[in-house]
Amino acid sequence: MVEGLRFMKLSEEMVRVVIEKVKKELGDLVKSVEEGKGYISIKVPLNRLREAAVKLKNMGFDHVKSLTVTDYKKKGVFEVMYMASSYLDEELSRIIVSLTVEIDRNNPRMPSLSDIWTSVEFQEREVYEFFGIHFEGHPDLRPLLLVPDIADLKPLTKDFIVKEEPIFKS
């Protein structure tokens, strides 16, 4: 067993350092870098996504915690966030960066990052069945959780409406 660890609360100083580092590393790739609640949001254009991901990976962000997709029906886009963090680098493990792209809702296609981050492979399959986003270059793009006839309905998009609860309706 390895020696126990001691605590260090995440300070704003550390977040700022990482933001600076990300800005320096990614350079002109990013549209914007801003601090969110619990994560750092890095917005990149869709065609530079893979480049940015490789650079983030080289920085030490070695795994993806969550592939979060939000459906903005009014804007007509899906916002895809790769929430990456680090295991091997202790400083970076306190930070979560979200590599964010927006893709067209009507033609949801984007490059797969599963060859860069293996940890995202199953989550991309999940997003594929829930939103119908087609990840180009994914090695094994099949539905993961749903049966085929429900996966066709793309249940997590805002088009799919579930019967709501009648009480306490605000």
């Binding site: 795994h63 091997l88 940890s119 995202v120």
Partner: peptide, 9 residues
């Protein structure tokens, strides 16, 4: 191994 564990997340 440690590296694989980090890679698989």
């Amino acid at each position: 191994p440690k590296k694989l564990a980090a890679e698989l997340g």
